[in-house]
Design a protein around this nucleic acid. Structure first.
Length: 423
RNA sequence: GGAGAGAUGGCAGAGUGGCCGAAUGCGCCCGCUUGCUAAGCGGGUGGAGGGCAACCUCCCCCGGGUUCGAAUCCCGGUCUCUCCGCCA
């Protein structure tokens, strides 16, 4: 959420930002409501002040004077409550609209409509060259008896899967590798609630707008998270942290649930786009300083790159264009890993910085060096998401005989094995 | 799921209709004092909004209500604790 004062002072900038992001919102209506609310509040507060004054005098009065005063206040109270009612209604409408105004994108964000206009920043490694006909991860999975899609579909519907045997172990191994990597860097490991309240979804800016993507348990009004970012960023919501406590660096392991509404027919085969997966997510809460924020953005990007390097996978980093940014994101770098079966780079990581956008919604604050209370900055990035990452892992490391080369870093998690042999 | 108790400032803990934005203690900050780790004395010490200066308004878990007036009474919600039931 943007600061209303900021919107008030920079309406054109805010509108331009929304335009760049291709997100519709009602800036003018917000300003109009803002004005109305302030006027109504001033009126209401004037009456309230008068009441407060009278309230102090009434106990001293007696007889006629007292009765008259009470009568007058009764009348004033009615008027004041009517004003308050209006204020409440207007404020609710204002908030609803304000929540939908996007954070203007940063200067370094390329303009573009969708992911086809993202800009490649650099490549680390090149597409794998095979001297044999490579198999896709589904075939490899069959060969190794690692997945079962048919039975999963029967039991749980589309976009579901079982991981079994080496597939199950592989997932746990990459997750643990990623978690250990982050822990060694001083990020606090967290196991998080996978089911959260609406406020957490709203606070992290998934709602309003993203309701279609989240599973909702209607009876209990709880939502299944699509990422550990939601509980992790919400962790200190409502608190005022001390500067000395910042930055907060954490990494959380969670299951992630996504309805994939609107993606019907896209990526229906295999492990790419599924309803449930596991992910290690890194989150940083830091002071409200753009340079600090940017430095941490680079840090969380580097952390994830290191994981891919340990997995010996080719990848590239793209600067996500304005139209492909979420409403709260100032800037986002995606990491795309080479996926031979797609003949293309596929998104495996997404590193975002938000400035105060989430913190303001979450009321996540800190006391700066001058003792002033300010909203924190927040950032997050995938460390690893599985089973999607198994696609490049299996496909890039396959050998002509169908065996899978295991990167050195991964071996300790798989009993020292260097190779997965077909069963 | 059933029965009961409770939620007050960084913490502890008063307050049951006006004198309470809130006693007291601890903690913290500033100053003074004292020759020595410590103590004493004085002052200060939450957040939000509006004019943005004096000032005004709001916040005693959250949201409504009663009342001239609510931390205090009523209703709804959330959370915590105790007992019973169930359970990985």
């Amino acid at each position: 959420m943007l600061d209303l004062k900021f919107v008030r002072a920079n309406p054109e900038l805010v509108k331009a930002g929304a335009l760049k992001k291709r997100i519709a919102c009602e800036v003018d209506r917000v300003l109009e409501l803002d004005l109305e609310v302030r006027q109504l509040k001033t009126e209401s507060e004037t009456k309230k002040a008068e009441q407060n004054r009278a309230t102090k005098e009434i106990p001293a009065l007696t007889g006629e004077a007292k009765a008259a005063a009470i009568q007058a206040m009764k009348q004033l109270g009615v008027e004041q409550k009517a004003l308050d009612q209006q204020v409440r209604e207007k404020e609710a409408e204002l908030r609803e609209l304000l929540l939908r105004i996007p954070n203007p994108p940063g200067e370094e964000v390329p303009d573009g409509a969708d992911d086809t206009e993202n800009v490649e920043l650099r490549r680390e490694g090149e597409p794998t060259v095979f001297d044999f006909e490579p198999k896709d991860h589904i075939e490899l999975g069959q060969l190794h008896d690692m997945f079962d899609f048919e039975r999963a579909t029967r039991i749980a519907g589309s976009r579901t899967y079982f991981l079994k045997n080496a597939g199950a172990l592989l997932e746990l191994s990459v997750l643990r590798l990623a978690l250990d990597h982050m822990t060694a860097k001083g990020y606090a490991p967290m196991l998080v609630p996978n089911l959260v309240r609406r406020e957490a979804m709203e606070g992290t800016a998934y709602f309003p707008g993203g309701e279609d993507q989240a599973y909702c348990t209607e009876r209990d009004e709880l939502y299944l998270i699509g990422t550990a970012e939601v509980p992790l960023t919400s962790f200190h919501a409502g608190e005022i942290l001390e500067l000395a406590d910042l930055p907060k660096k954490v990494c959380g392991w969670s299951n992630c649930f996504r309805r994939e509404a609107g993606a019907a027919g896209r990526d229906t085969r295999g492990l790419y786009r599924i309803h449930q997966f596991q992910k290690i997510e890194q989150v940083i809460v830091c002071e409200a300083d753009e340079e600090v924020s940017k430095a941490f953005h680079a840090e969380i990007l580097r952390n994830s790159e290191e994981v891919l390097q340990m997995l010996e996978l080719p990848y590239r980093v793209v600067n996500v264009c304005s139209g492909d940014l979420g409403s709260g994101q100032i800037q986002k770098f995606d990491i795309e890993t080479w996926m031979p079966s797609r003949g293309n780079w596929g998104e495996t990581h997404s590193a975002s910085r938000f400035h105060e956008f989430q913190a303001r919604r979450l009321n996540l604050r800190y006391r700066d060096a001058e003792g002033k209370v300010r909203f924190c900055h927040t950032l997050n990035n995938t460390v690893i998401a599985s089973p999607r990452v198994l696609i490049p892992l299996l496909e890039n490391h396959q050998r002509a005989d169908g065996s899978i080369y295991l990167p050195k870093a991964l071996r300790p998690y798989l009993g020292g094995r260097e190779l997965l042999e077909p069963r």
